[in-house]
Design a protein around this nucleic acid. Sequence first.
DNA 1: CCGATTTGTCAAGCCTCCTTTACAAAGTGG
DNA 2: CCACTTTGTAAAGGAGGCTTGACAAATCGG
Lengths: 63, 63
Amino acid sequence: MKNRLKVLRAERNWSQQDLADRLEVSRQSVNAIETGRYDPSLPLAFRIADVFGTQIEDIFLRE
Amino acid sequence: MKNRLKVLRAERNWSQQDLADRLEVSRQSVNAIETGRYDPSLPLAFRIADVFGTQIEDIFLRE
DNA sequence: CCGATTTGTCAAGCCTCCTTTACAAAGTGG
DNA sequence: CCACTTTGTAAAGGAGGCTTGACAAATCGG
């Protein structure tokens, strides 16, 4: 499952740590999701969508 | 995390087994999600949205 | 009322998500 | 060039998602 985290983060000039802080997860989790090592849980996917002010479907892509 | 699975299933007159077959998961998984024992993984949430022809946000509700 | 279907739940086991600690490589700014 | 920040990755452990098999309670249709 691909995602647009890196781009969304870059648009805001946030480090992985910045995003992790906003999501209240570890930096390693952000990195793992961003590099595709695993998908977030559904609750975390909702928090990610919230942080970027968009929908889950606009960040995570079926495929 | 609440969800509208039971209603969506009722609208289509599907049993939990019918839905499980369409999602390619066990009936117990459908039941556990429906009764709120746990949330689906993100990939499964996408499949659920696909089966009902809607968005994840229209099925699963924050809180 | 009876048989069949549907739903709820439990247990054991495996795999995924997320954590902390830790280290190295790569990039950034004086 | 040198310190500092950022990113990638690893290992070990706890919590959660999903499986199969099983059983009982509830509901449905004749």
